[in-house]
């Protein structure tokens, strides 16, 4: 409910409420949940809620926690949507949003730069990022296909690497047999 600024802003709040105040989870358990929530698709907070709810009360707990984490947003947005529908043609609302729209571009660009700084890209990875952006903007390619291609390539390289490793291992054992 009191999350402004997206997923990462919520982590200390969940930590304080769930771990420190109510001691529903151990600190270490929370760190584990965090690691898994970050590697599953979806929104971080929702993933944490699902996992934490499951740990505490099983399936029902995870349903309850998920609803709890989405319901306030849902209700607030619904109220705003209903409110703005009445003001669609309002000249002041129009002027307000004319000023807001360019700001939105900046608000999305800032996390991009933060992510670039955090993930210290090499030239190859930076090229992938640039190619992805170009393909989406100019070729109108869906990000879904790019993600799928990336995931397939990842598993292929993992599989190829696994084969190589196994081959290496069997060669090694052959040598051991020889000696």
């Amino acid at each position: 409910m009191f999350t402004l600024g997206g997923g990462y802003a919520m982590i200390p709040i969940i930590d304080r409420e769930v771990v420190k105040k109510r001691s529903w989870l151990e600190q270490e358990e929370f760190m584990d949940i965090l690691a898994i929530a970050q590697s599953a698709p979806g929104l971080l907070i929702v993933n944490i809620s699902i996992f934490a709810g499951y740990r505490l009360r099983g399936k029902r707990g995870s349903v309850a926690a998920t609803i709890g984490s989405c319901l306030p947003s849902f209700l607030i947005i619904l109220a705003i949507a209903l409110f703005f529908v009445g003001f669609k043609e309002n000249i002041y609302v129009d002027k307000f949003f004319k000023g807001v729209r360019p700001v939105v571009v900046a608000l999305i660009a800032v996390p991009v730069i933060d992510m670039i700084k955090k993930s210290n890209l090499n030239i190859f990875r930076a090229l992938i990022a640039v190619a992805t952006a170009a393909a989406i903007i100019w070729l109108k390619l869906s990000p879904i296909y790019i993600l799928l291609t990336g995931a397939v390539l990842f598993f292929l390289s993992r599989w190829a690497g696994g084969l190589k490793r196994e081959k290496g291992r069997s060669e090694k054992s052959d040598k051991q047999v020889d000696s």
Partner: peptide, 29 residues
């Protein structure tokens, strides 16, 4: 999965950058 996520990071960065780029329309600017 953590490793998959790490490897997809550049694609995600490109995706979000594109989202910002697409919003630069003549109507918005």
């Amino acid at each position: 999965f953590t490793s998959l996520m790490k490897n997809l990071r550049p694609v995600v960065i490109g995706m979000i950058a594109a989202a910002a780029g697409i919003l630069i329309t003549p109507e918005n600017f």
